[in-house]
């Protein structure tokens, strides 16, 4: 399935507001685009995205057919403790992919 580029600052101070950037490789096929024979390419999009910080839910998003291919998401979290950020995204077939990144708080 899709691969992703996750950008998390590795070393931050406690209380810092840090920006997290995620770029996911995905065609985001809308289901409205005709192929050369006039039939529509079947819809194939990512429906949802979520991020947890250790076990706490810190961000989530719903995605729709109007979102461009290779969706780019950027959001901020407050660095409270050294821990693991877990990113997950789910497609139309309800397949979920997970990627993690460490964040070290001084």
């Amino acid at each position: 399935m899709a691969r992703a580029l996750v950008n998390v600052p590795t070393k931050v101070k406690r209380g810092d507001v840090v920006e997290i950037k995620v770029l996911i490789s995905h065609p985001m096929e809308t289901g409205f685009r005709p192929d050369p024979n006039g039939k529509f390419y079947p819809r194939d999009i990512l429906k949802s995205f979520a991020c947890t910080y250790d076990s706490e839910h810190v961000f989530s998003a719903e995605l729709f057919p109007a979102v461009s291919a290779n969706p780019f998401l950027s959001f901020t979290v407050v660095a409270t403790q050294t821990g693991v950020l877990t990113f997950s995204w789910t497609d139309d077939k309800d397949q979920t992919q997970v990627q993690t990144a460490k964040i070290e708080v001084e």
Binding site: R3, L5, L23, S25
Partner: peptide, 13 residues
């Protein structure tokens, strides 16, 4: 920015 350039996904592939 390599974190936003979608071409980097292709490079990873």
């Amino acid at each position: 920015d390599d974190g936003t350039n979608p071409g980097m996904l292709s490079a990873l592939d």
